Amino acid sequence: SIKEIEKEEIIKVLKEVNFNKKLASEILGIPLRTLYKRLKEYGI
Rank of each mutant, 00 (worst) to 15 (best):
S25C: 05
K12R: 15
E4D: 14
L39H: 01
K15F: 12
N20T: 02
N18D: 10
S1T: 14
Y36N: 15
S1Y: 03
S1M: 08
K15P: 01
K7C: 04
V17I: 05
E6H: 10
A24G: 03
I5C: 04
E8G: 10
L14K: 00
A24T: 06
V13N: 01
K3E: 12
G43M: 08
L23N: 05
Y36W: 09
A24Y: 01
T34D: 15
Y36L: 15
K3W: 13
I27V: 12
E8S: 12
E6G: 11
F19L: 04
K7R: 12
L39R: 01
I10D: 01
T34F: 06
Y36R: 13
L23K: 12
I11D: 03
R38D: 03
Y36S: 09
L28E: 00
L23R: 13
G43F: 07
R38Q: 12
I2T: 14
K12H: 08
K21F: 12
K7T: 07
K21S: 08
L35K: 00
V17Q: 06
K40F: 11
I44T: 05
K21N: 08
P31N: 09
L39I: 14
E26S: 11
E8Y: 13
G43I: 05
Y36H: 11
E41R: 06
E4H: 10
E6T: 13
G43S: 07
G43N: 11
K22A: 10
K21P: 11
R33C: 05
N18A: 12
I30T: 02
R33H: 14
V13C: 04
L35C: 01
K40G: 06
I5L: 15
G43P: 03
N18W: 07
L39K: 01
A24R: 00
N20E: 04
K22I: 13
E4G: 09
E26V: 13
L39V: 05
L14S: 01
E4Q: 12
I27L: 12
I11F: 09
L28T: 02
K40E: 15
I44G: 05
S25T: 04
K21M: 12
N18H: 10
T34S: 09
I5F: 13
E16M: 15
P31C: 04
E4A: 08
I10Y: 05
S25P: 00
E9R: 15
